[in-house]
Design a protein around this nucleic acid. Structure first.
Length: 294
DNA sequence: AGGTCGGCCTGGCAGC
DNA sequence: TGCTGCCAGGCCGACC
């Protein structure tokens, strides 16, 4: 989510008020199950009136009441190429890596001469067009509370986790409770909350509800402050990498020292996903963790 | 209904 | 060198 929000914030000032003159879908996977030309015709000639986000979905709201909804999944990128093209330092890097050509899946030509490009080496990203009503139905059936909204309270966390018998890590990844938490931020949030990833929601006590809520918020806000995490492919709308990956507390740090106690961070698989945690700080039992060194 | 697991994709890399 | 096979992970659908 920090990655999508970073892109949204960059795109908003440049895209609002722009008209999309032409759309070219170069890979039918992008618009699947809709045919490319149907997607193109639904978007061409429309003005963008807002750039929003819901969970990890980016939303280009059009003047005709429809919205272009784009999900980047893991490896999708949205790059805004300025009207003057080469002046943008990010552009040069994209051409250098041959990404803009090799993995270009869709392009949106703007009325100011600029272009929004969707690239995705793994072809998981998707885009579709929907009206307000359809979008509401779509999101309501899939997505829960926004983590950075006032609705994400300790009470809501308590209610969401109350009857959960599966691992909290899986709950965080499931977008029906709280949205926007992917594998990186789930690990970071659980560490901040000092909760073991295999802990069940039903076993949480009131202090844990607060710790987990705060952990999620803090992990996501840290990611936002750092412009997202660029482990592999992620780049922002200007083609620049984020720096969250340099400040992971536990994620992808197997064998390294816990930043809190110095214990060795371990990796396990939860729900088929790599999960990193500190076995000393994030205990399953109530036994207080021993402190080794700060 | 909640939980679990495999599939979708491709590039990168370890291991032989 | 070149091949195989595994891993990365957001979401969905099938199944228990």
């Amino acid at each position: 989510m920090p990655e999508v929000e970073t892109i949204r914030r960059q795109l908003e000032p440049d895209l609002v008020g722009r008209t999309i003159e032409a759309v070219e879908v170069l890979d039918s996977y992008f618009s699947k199950p809709e045919l490319p030309h149907v997607f193109e015709k639904a978007v061409e000639g429309r003005e963008i009136v807002d750039v929003g986000r819901r969970g990890k979905y980016l939303i280009l709201e059009l003047a005709d009441g429809n919205s272009v909804v784009i999900h980047l999944r893991m490896t999708g990128s949205l790059i805004l190429v300025d009207p003057d093209g080469v002046e943008n330092p990010g552009d040069a890097r994209i051409y250098e890596a041959d990404q803009g050509v090799k993995h270009l899946k869709a392009r949106f030509s703007l009325d100011d001469g600029g272009e929004l490009r969707f690239t995705d080496p793994r072809r998981f990203g998707r885009g579709f067009v929907a009206d307000d009503k359809a979008l509401e139905v779509y999101f309501d059936s899939r997505l829960g509370v926004e983590p950075l909204s006032p609705e994400f309270t300790v009470e809501s966390m308590a209610a969401m986790t109350a009857n959960r018998t599966g691992p909290l890590k899986s709950f965080l990844l499931n977008q029906k409770g709280v949205v926007g938490v992917g594998n990186i931020y789930a690990d970071e949030a659980l560490f901040r909350a000092r909760i073991h990833p295999l802990t069940t929601g039903a076993s949480l006590k009131p202090e844990h509800h607060k710790a987990l809520r705060d952990g999620v918020v803090e992990a996501l806000e840290r990611g936002l402050d750092l412009g997202g995490a660029s482990i592999d492919d992620y780049r922002d709308a200007k083609g620049e990498a984020g720096s969250m990956q340099n400040e992971f507390l536990v994620h992808r740090r197997e064998g390294e020292d816990c930043p809190e106690c110095g214990e060795t961070i371990v990796r396990i698989v939860v729900g088929g996903r790599s999960t990193y945690f500190c076995p000393n700080c994030q205990v399953k039992l109530r036994k207080p963790p021993r402190r080794r060194r700060a």
